[in-house]
Amino acid sequence: MAHIDLFFSTISPYAYLAGNRAEKVAEKHGATITYKPLDVLALFARTGGTPPKDRHFSRIDYRAQELVRQAKKADMPFNLKPAHWPTNQAPSSYAVIAAQNAGGGDLSGLCHALLRACWAEEKNIAEDDVIRACLKGAGFDPALADSGMLTGAETYAANLEEAVERGVFGSPFYITDGDQRFWGQDRIDDLDAHLAGDL
């Protein structure tokens, strides 16, 4: 069975705009996904990237145009300047890690609920009540927000180290069994083609 490691940040606009397209591709090809939330700002620092606020104005302007275009293409609600961004990524990431370890709910739904809360619903995904609501909505025990903090912190840090070692430099980033790497929500069609044996 094919497998995909999905490295992403819970505050990444591009991870939000990916929607559930990668999950549909995985289902189509009978592939599994392991979600690996990480600190994308730390990833930038480790891999030669620059935080959005520190980029040249031409890059900032282009990013603003491109995000709006991509949201329209995906027909997804999107706020270019959400009230709570950037925010602390760790609590929501720990919740994803705890939910993945616990099983029994819709992990994809949880990830997308957190991303949607940030980029479309003006919610602060560092807050416990927001995280608990997302967990509950995805069929998980809201108490997972309080459990496994040590494991969550260790896995969160390990995900960053693994990402750096495996050539990840942005979010979302998909890596297949054969170490084929696909960066960005605009490469999901290529991921599909690769899993089909066409690319």
Rank of each mutant, 00 (worst) to 15 (best):
T10C: 14
D75M: 12
T10S: 13
R21K: 13
K72P: 01
G148M: 09
L114H: 11
V168K: 12
V40H: 03
L160E: 08
Y174D: 04
L195N: 13
Y174T: 01
D190H: 14
G148T: 12
P142I: 12
G30I: 03
A90L: 15
A22K: 00
L38W: 05
Y16G: 03
Y14P: 00
F57E: 15
N124S: 14
P51H: 10
D54H: 15
P52G: 10
A95F: 09
Y156M: 04
L144Y: 10
L110Y: 06
P142A: 15
P51G: 10
A98P: 09
W119Y: 13
E161F: 06
K24Y: 02
T10W: 00
L150A: 15
H194T: 13
H194C: 12
D189F: 05
D129L: 08
L43E: 07
Y14M: 10
D5F: 06
L114Y: 13
G137N: 13
L80F: 00
R116P: 00
A31L: 03
V164P: 05
R63G: 05
A158S: 15
A90C: 04
P13Q: 12
G19C: 04
D106K: 08
S171L: 03
V164H: 08
N159G: 10
Y35K: 05
L80G: 12
Y35M: 08
P51R: 11
I11R: 00
D146Y: 05
Y16I: 00
F8A: 14
K72C: 01
S92P: 01
E66L: 05
H84S: 06
D198P: 00
G104N: 07
D186C: 08
E165Y: 01
A120R: 10
T47M: 07
D198F: 12
I4Q: 01
M1H: 10
L38Q: 11
G184R: 06
F78T: 09
L107E: 09
F7K: 09
Y62Q: 09
A26R: 02
L191Q: 04
S9Q: 08
L38H: 09
I11Q: 03
E66F: 07
G49K: 11
I11F: 04
F173T: 08
E162Q: 15
V168E: 08
C111D: 02
A74I: 00
A31E: 00
P172F: 05
R187K: 15
I125T: 15
F57H: 13
N159S: 06
T10A: 11
Y14S: 08
I175M: 12
V68F: 03
L114P: 03
G152C: 09
T50R: 09
G137F: 04
D146P: 06
D177V: 06
N124E: 14
A42E: 13
L38I: 08
D39A: 11
G49D: 12
Y16L: 05
T50C: 04
V40R: 01
Q65G: 02
V40L: 15
E161Y: 03
A31Q: 05
A113R: 15
A99H: 13
L17S: 11
F7D: 06
A145R: 14
A99S: 14
Y156E: 06
H29R: 04
G104H: 10
G19I: 02
D177G: 14
A95S: 10
G104P: 05
F8C: 07
G105R: 13
K53S: 14
D186H: 04
M149G: 02
